[in-house]
């Protein structure tokens, strides 16, 4: 098998939600539709420890079978690349372990195999994570406190595109921001495979005091369904590798 697709949401935020739905519950719902939720929490330069508000970041990702990291703006570039990659690997690992169980019995997972066989399984997983199509919704928190970190976010997303462009599998992404004055989320860039376009959509920002993270997640996740109908995103219709398989390891 070398065709299939992985769907992810990447949420970039710097604080806890203070309005609307519970983002952890929303995240749990989203993963049941075959989409994993990854979260990057951005710290202020003068924050020396993880603020309590940012704990939510880990909880959202855990509920969404995704990966989370809390970092300073300067470390964003390498973090985004790592989170995206790791989340994809996790989804595929979960999928492969599930397949192994169905072939070899309930107690089997990759680690129960002898090191030699494990090496072969690893190669299959590496092949898969290089060749599967990746569909990603990028959701950026643009509330007032994020303003100073925006240029770092922009740089990091631009850098992420360089990594994703280098993969063999197809890559499609769309960008949303929240909050905005009238809507919960605003579409900044519709589904595209052109990594260069992300740099151009970024100057337009609204500022808001509220952070309705849960509602924003729910709205942004709809992008995966819209595109199925529009047939814009070719990957979504077949062989979605479901992240909810992921083992707890």
């Amino acid at each position: 098998m070398n065709k299939g697709s992985v769907s992810q949401i990447l949420l970039i935020t710097d604080g806890c939600s203070n309005q609307g739905e519970d983002p952890v519950a929303v995240s749990r719902h989203i993963v049941s539709t075959g989409v994993s939720v990854n979260v990057i929490g951005v710290l202020d330069d003068d924050q020396t420890e993880e603020p309590i508000g940012l704990r939510e970041v880990n909880e959202i990702a855990e509920a969404g079978k995704g990966v989370s990291r809390i970092v300073y703006a300067d470390d964003l570039s390498e973090t985004m690349q790592m989170v995206t990659q790791q989340a994809m690997t996790q989804t595929i690992q979960g999928y492969v372990n599930q397949e192994l169980k169905s072939i070899l019995g309930d107690e089997t997972n990759e680690e129960a195999l002898p090191p030699e066989t494990r090496g072969e399984v690893q190669e299959v997983m590496e092949d898969l994570s290089e060749t599967v199509d990746l569909n990603m919704v990028i959701l950026v928190d643009t509330s007032a406190s994020m303003q100073t970190k925006m240029s770092a976010v922009k740089e990091a997303l631009d850098d992420l595109m360089i990594s994703l462009d280098a993969r063999q599998g197809q890559f499609m992404y769309t960008v949303y921001q929240f909050p905005t004055r009238k809507q919960v989320v605003k579409l900044l860039l519709d589904w595209t495979d052109d990594g260069k376009r992300i740099a151009k959509v970024f100057p337009k920002f609204a500022v808001g005091g509220i952070t309705p993270t849960g509602s924003a997640l729910r709205e942004a996740a709809k992008a995966f369904h819209i595109s199925e109908q529009d047939d814009v995103m070719r990957g979504a219709a077949y062989d979605v590798i479901d992240p909810s398989y992921r083992s707890s390891s």
Binding site: S77, E78, Q81, Q85, E130, D159, I162, S163, L164, A166, R167, Q168
Partner: peptide
Amino acid sequence: GRGIREYTSIYDRGF
């Protein structure tokens, strides 16, 4: 032909 996943910014031409 694949994507490089492990790199160090200063040595990375993408950076």
